[in-house]
Design a protein around this nucleic acid. Structure first.
Lengths: 350, 350
DNA sequence: CTGAAAGCGCTAACAC
DNA sequence: GTGTTAGCGCTTTCAG
């Protein structure tokens, strides 16, 4: 007899033995099937029997084994979240939204190993990703990481991509970077600024690149010369360092458009320490609208990026893919909005 | 015969059928066992056979099913991360460290549904948590959520708790809040400040409470009157609002100790908007040492909290518990250090 | 309303 | 080197 065989009788030396459905069945004097029915809240069980089973579950500390359930159902009720860099604000906020949305749908969110992009090609006979216990993957690309095929991701699992090159033949959800950069720049232009410097994120970042492109494009469209883009690394310190250099040179611009709020903070710091004022001497615009932006000194004018919506959309899309909906390779672009605060003002008289 | 039975033959209407080990075995003309050996990189397979199998795996897009593996091994190679609030800096940084540490150990990190604390008692016959596909749990408590028993967490899974009431009979890793608050206050005291206001986090936060207690204690020890603690909500805006009120009243203090950097940012904003200076008129100290703190205006003096270490320690401890080490219910307190920057200075002459 | 049988995909143990 | 058998814990199917 194979029942009650997992050592539950439990010596102290065998601490972690977990009661199986059979243990409960034996304990309650019913069949495993009946225990299963009770565990799943099915109605066709006589109340007396149910109570007996419930008592046994209680007594044995029974908890269903999800591996067995997964094996049976072929589903894990979990979605995988892959990033190559969890430590950025946008990615964390996106993860947040994904975790909440998937929780609401009864799914769990699994953080998949952040593969070193340079090591992708050593992947073995099959990709590591898809053997994970997830039903689908949300991939936050952030930056160039070699082809997706190399990632070994394409084969089986439903996939939604966030923050990427929008030309990929996959379902994609993203912030409309171009639109965001344009409204920021237009605001500056409307204020009379003609000499605007852009501080970008790292060169390999998709979103940074698209904002920088929009900068060049917008300036060109306005028949204005674009200054060389200053390349930062998203961190406030890089904004500060770059701005210091910039302000030490001949002609400081009348406005700076930073590719995120943190670098904008650095720019304002550099302005303050020169004894200049924001926006009196120089206007500053950020990107993201972090929670702190409105409390910066002065309150930062910035582009509000809706990470929650990106995460929610990505999750919804992925869930529908998991449910077998046909993959329409939709591309969803979430619109941003400009939040005007105190860091921008009319250009200073020449 | 049960082989090749999972519909892999695949009509378009049966899209997501995945090749099983048996499908590969049939395709390659070997036994499932041999496929298993190849998949697991065992050496005792003739190269010709191995290649044949590899080719079949390739052809069928085979990927091992982790549910089956989990069922077999009784392990999930995943650790669960539970928070009631993912959206705070500390929790995200901790999650980060946990994800990295567990990845390094070959584990995946699963974000467990953030249960609504108020709904805990409606839990069914068994806790939801422990049926999850994880081998252990890192619980970030953050605030009072009713007894852990109610959480249904105690029964089976290895557990490490972060950010909690340190009296719990569990393995606990935490920042030494008291030590942190004390060095911040001592710094202010050394600078000659006697009238120091503390802005705390929300009342139900463990870490906030402990910092506030340390504030009262330190002031008492120095024979100085403590002002009533101003209760914020961690967000910069709350620091700003509270500081505005404070400065509108009769006697502004000469220094403010905020329970996190964001609220300190709010305090500095309130000082600037009155036309006062930091630290000339009022000194400000924060807590956390966020990445931006050094770029605030002025650069913020703050208590550096090592979230990475907290997360790493918690993970290491949990992993050893999972490996069956005896539970010594260790309590690890991570020491903080004061980072002195430009927001603190000698008290202004009376 | 309850039970028995079979099998999800994989691997450990044991043949040969 | 390779195959066979059995069983992880659960649920679906079919009998009673």
């Amino acid at each position: 007899m194979t029942y009650a065989s997992n050592g539950l009788s439990g010596h102290a030396s065998q601490p972690r033995a977990r009661a199986s459905i059979n243990d409960v069945a034996v304990h309650a004097g019913v069949s495993a099937q009946t225990v299963s029915r009770v565990a799943n809240g099915q109605t066709n069980v006589r109340p007396t029997t149910r109570d007996k089973v419930l008592a046994s579950m209680q007594a044995l500390g029974y908890r269903p084994n999800s591996a067995a359930r997964n094996l049976k159902s072929g589903r894990f009720r979990s979605i995988g979240f892959v990033t190559f860099n969890l430590a950025t604000l946008g990615n964390e906020r996106t993860l947040n939204a994904v975790a909440e949305a998937s929780e609401a749908a009864g799914y769990t969110t699994t953080l998949l190993p952040v593969i070193d992009p340079t090591q992708l090609d050593v992947a073995g006979a099959f990709g590591r990703l898809e053997e994970q216990a997830v039903d689908g993957i949300i991939l936050v690309m952030s930056s160039e990481v070699g082809s997706l095929d190399e990632l070994g991701i394409t084969a089986g699992l439903p996939l939604v991509i966030v923050d990427s090159d929008a030309n990929l033949p996959y379902t994609i959800v993203d912030t409309d970077q171009e639109q965001g950069a344009k409204i920021a720049l237009q605001h500056l232009l409307d204020l009379g600024h003609r000499d605007i410097v852009h501080i970008s994120g790292p060169a390999d970042s998709f979103s940074s690149r698209r904002r920088a492109d929009a900068y060049r494009q917008t300036m060109a469209d306005a028949n204005l010369p674009a200054r060389p883009v200053l390349v930062g690394d998203w961190r406030a310190a890089s904004g500060l360092a770059l701005a210091r250099e910039l302000f030490a040179a001949e002609n400081p611009p009348t406005a700076v458009f930073a590719s995120n709020d943190q670098m904008a903070l650095g720019v304002m710091h550099a302005i303050h320490e020169r004894g200049w004022t924001v926006p009196g001497d120089i206007s500053v615009v950020g990107f993201d609208d972090t929670e702190e932006a409105e409390v910066y000194w002065p309150a930062l004018t910035t582009v509000h990026q809706n990470f929650d919506q990106v995460g929610r959309h990505a999750t919804t899309l992925l869930l529908s893919l998991i449910d077998g909906e046909p993959n329409t390779k939709e591309k969803i672009l979430i619109t941003t909005r400009l939040v005007v605060r105190d860091s921008t003002g009319p250009v200073r008289p020449a």
